[in-house]
């Protein structure tokens, strides 16, 4: 049962107060995109054993979406951060690097 700090309202949110939203930082592919790009966007997900960047909505709290960097094996939370960004902030990347020196976003 995860507990994640909501970066939007500052409350510690229990998993039952949250709604999961899957992989974060997907790049939307619209009209004009190639079939391959659309396939990647709609269907292909990383689902790694290790560092995951994922979307959560504080549905039973402030209602805001936020992103979390978490380890899918140890459940360690490297940090949560606002959804209005294309990559985790440096501070969180540093924390990930301490555990997974070779990790790179989307790699």
């Amino acid at each position: 049962m995860l507990t994640l700090p909501c970066p939007c309202c500052g409350a510690d949110a229990a998993e039952i107060e949250l709604v999961p939203g899957g992989e974060a930082h997907l790049k939307r592919e619209g009209p004009g995109a190639s079939d391959e790009a659309v396939e990647r966007y709609l269907f292909e997900r990383e689902n790694p054993k290790g560092v995951v960047l994922e979307r959560w909505r504080h549905a039973y709290g402030c209602g805001k979406w936020f992103l979390a960097a978490r380890d899918s094996v140890t459940m360690e939370v490297y940090g949560t951060y606002p959804a209005q960004t294309h990559e985790p902030p440096q501070e969180i990347r540093d924390r990930i690097a301490r555990r997974h020196p070779d990790w790179a976003q989307g790699a």
Partner: peptide, 13 residues
């Protein structure tokens, strides 16, 4: 409603 907020908050913020 959640769907609308998702796109507003996460894509077209």
């Amino acid at each position: 409603h959640a769907h609308m907020e998702d796109w507003l908050q996460c894509e077209w913020w």
